[in-house]
């Protein structure tokens, strides 16, 4: 997942509770959009606006969980 986020950080230094705002992740509200579009491409999914709102993204864990939900939902459809 870190690879997908293209954060260029050491996996060991990142855990689920790392804030998306932290200097290590360093997302802002625009770069978050950019990341989400990259994730969509990588997994061939489309994330709904509702999913993003509902996820209340705050830390790495919440972002990963949201992506996993969308990927699983897609898997279930097929």
């Amino acid at each position: 997942m870190i690879g997908v986020l293209e954060l260029g950080v050491d996996r060991d230094r990142l855990d689920e509770t790392t804030s998306l705002y932290s200097p290590m992740v360093g997302l802002d509200s625009l770069s978050l959009l950019h990341i989400l579009v990259q994730v969509e491409k990588r997994f061939d999914i489309e994330i709904d606006d509702e999913d993003v709102m509902a996820a209340e993204l705050s830390d790495v864990g919440s972002l990963v969980a949201m992506i996993r939900r969308v990927v699983d939902a897609k898997g279930a459809d097929e």
């Binding site: 804030s19 998306l20 705002y21 932290s22 200097p23 360093g26 997302l27 802002d28 509200s29 625009l30 770069s31 978050l32 959009l33 989400l36 579009v37 969509e40 994330i47 709904d48 606006d49 993003v52 709102m53 209340e56 993204l57 705050s58």
Partner: peptide, 22 residues
Amino acid sequence: SAPRVNGERKTLNPQLPLSMYR
């Protein structure tokens, strides 16, 4: 990226709806 002005804020809302940005 913007300079981090508010590291305390809890949730990170994307600035635009993803469906409009994409």
